[in-house]
Design a protein around this nucleic acid. Sequence first.
RNA 1: GCGAGAGUGGCGGAACUGGCAGACGCGCUGGACUUAGGAUCCAGUGCCGCAAGGUGUAGGGGUUCAAAUCCCCUCUCUCGCACCA
Length: 857
Amino acid sequence: MKYSPKTIEKKWQESWDNSALFEVKEIPDQEKYYLLEMFPYPSGKIHMGHVRNYTIGDVIARYKRMTGKNVLHPMGWDAFGLPAENAAIDNNTHPAKWTYANITHMKGQLRMMGFSYDWKREIATCDPDYYKWEQLVFIKMFEKGLAYKKRTNVNWCDLCQTVLAKEQVEDGCCWRHTNREVTIKEMDSWYFKITDYAEDILEKCDSLTGWPERVITMQKNWIGKSYGAIIKFPLADSDQFIDVFTTRPDTVYGVTFMCFAPEHLMLKGMIKGTAQEKDVLAFIERNMKIAGFIRTAEFTEKEGIFTGRYAVNPLTQEKIPIFVGNFVLADYGTGAIMCVPTHDQRDFEFAQKYNLKKRVVITPADTELDADTMTKAYEGQGLLVNSGRFNGLSNLKAIEEIALYLESEGMGSRTVNFRIRDWNISRQRYWGTPIPMLYCDKCGIVPVDEKDLPVVLPLNKELRGGGGSPLSFEPDFYETKCPKCNGIARRETDTMDTFVESSWYFARYASPRYDKAPVDKESVKYWLPVDQYIGGIEHAILHLLYSRFFTRVLKDLGYVHVDEPFKNLLTQGMVCKETEECPEHGYLFPDEVKDDKCTKCGAQVIRGRSLKMSKSKKNVVDPALLVDTYGADTVRMFCLFASPPERDLEWNDQGVEGAYRFLNRVWRLVDDNIDNFKNAPKVDEERLTGDLKTLNRKIHETVKKVTNDIEDRFHFNTAISAVMELINEAYRYMNDAKEMDENSWSVIRETAEKTVILLSPVVPHITEELWHMLGHEGYLIDAGWPGYNEGALEKDKRLIVVQVNGKVRSKIEVPASISDKEIEEMAIQDEKVKGFIGDKNIRKIFVVQQKLVNIVI
RNA sequence: GCGAGAGUGGCGGAACUGGCAGACGCGCUGGACUUAGGAUCCAGUGCCGCAAGGUGUAGGGGUUCAAAUCCCCUCUCUCGCACCA
């Protein structure tokens, strides 16, 4: 019988399905294992990135199940979001229709891959049964002050026609449109108070020992905690004060000017009536138009203007000029900074440009600084000078001392500053969770009554393009009554950021149909946290940070018992492929290239470097086509074999062929010999000798290696290669054997059986078929993971490498029981070795654990 | 600029705590079988050399009996951060 993936894959997928093989429930006395892969956005069809991500997860899920764990392995859809809305407008359909059609199609594709999901737990976040609970959590957050509304400057993406959170701006551009700069708009928005949890989220980073170091670093950087002080500078000729944040209170005596961000709220009032007012306003206006990212980028030249007002240095009582500077960040610290040109390079450059006063207040041990002649700021350590009562103190000590002094004088306070901002979750779009709030003229902002949840997204509406919250054009939706006073009220027409849905879906999977609360506490208690989470590194900040925040909120609301959602995190690499480019026609599809020439114009194509698969670079491979040709098992195997999970995967069509060839080899090992297997007795290890004993030992070695590779580090590539070695050795044995007796067939059958079990998490269909061909009943996944026999691993002979002066000169075979001393003797007696030693003296001999001898002459 | 990671045959990658560099796969070469093969099987394949042997893990230096692995310097690439006061 020929290996026919199409037939057997369909057969077993249906069989697993019919027997509900992967449906799980809580079993209190069985150890659980919650394995989760980041759920996909239902964009239309699955791509190679999904296939890789989910294959890695499936191997772990199946392996853990085979080792006796109760494995939760759910799947669902991150179903709200802009693409649905845009597709709806483009194709004159409805986002819901488009989304659900995509889900149906993609679900079919995932089934074809043979992933072991508990589909009974499937979630689509656009389902009112899901977002209802999100709305409830929102209301609870509002009641606790964790969700609030404010009017501020926000980041706006013109292409998305919506506001973005700070995390969703990359290099000044929208995270979806990396070539479109965000603009600044003043708007009302809803915020989640993630800053309340910043300290805890930061601190617990160090407890996440199962996370990749770089993800932790990125999160720490994003939160950006720094210790310093807020210092109050009196505004001259007024009774006002200006707050500045600094990490360097030790340099206050050196402050010779001050700088405001153009957005600073005190500015306009301050300059009223001054001679400079017009010029300063013009400066502010001009700079406000430049996107914050560009204005404060490193390559932008520092620019400022004197406001005409002065502040008073609280320690020197000196009057210092106040400037507005383009480089000062409005949303970090207080939006105003004290400037110390002698000890801060940025301030130094600014002072040089505008010819401002400088005073040295820290002196290094070896040289004397002169404020007038120095060419750059001195930012190192030293002793304080020109600093009144603090002279002579080391500056590190002075940071504390001066802050304390200012505190005691009521001129400041030590403080901790965070870079992270509250999470703006308002989106001026249609296809998202409605924010369950309403506005009443009499009662103000009022939450929707819990019994009226969910606030359902109206589905019978036609979408129009052109911007503005679509729901704000739907009176049927926004016209309502106030639950407090029964008067006329208007619903909130913005929807929530879609990152909100993905911030808690992992908890919902524990009890996906629970209809009394967001989660069933008992289920959550059993399943959470996620033991292993798998997904792309691109979510290092966004999704993973929001999820950590939301889990804390859910804990404080009493829904879950954990504060960290994901115990272990694996960030898999990208799937890459070579690109081909024509000088005239840009990127080309593989079939647009013939003999290295562009089929459109005949120009020589440029073979580009390997890049992440993407439609725009035309280097994508459609998994569906591959599955159709080779079967899901081959595709799964190649994805795992080509590189370890955390590294990028280099796509190679010929490599796929190799995987297919190997599976055929495994198939034939069983299929060709099945009759011989039937009559062979059980392996009797005592009676094995020679090559057969070696092959039998190889079986045990392979079990050991595969187990370690999967268990310790998820290195499936080396696990697979170990099985390949075993298969190669079995074929070699059969090829070399003069005669195949019963004993031989026993060991070959044993090889086949163990191969089938060890490969089953990787290629579940072919192995299930072979398992049954080998005469077993029941599903392979319940067959248990094999152990190995340490005794069978022992060799009676060993090959010892003999080095002379560190160079390999010979190899000798010795009995395993031999002593180090005897090995030395044998090594010296070896003919080849003798030739290298000659008549020289042996100075020393090293023997390494029955492996190697190094003779030093 | 700062931080993290990486650099190994023609290619993807192995080598886990320093102990035979290149497992396994792809590709390539030769052979067998065959009406035919882009199926299958066997053998070979880092580089130089007929061979003995030499040489080799980005480059240079060091530690060690022994270095892809540890230390120092340089280069290249990837990712993240980037006027954060």
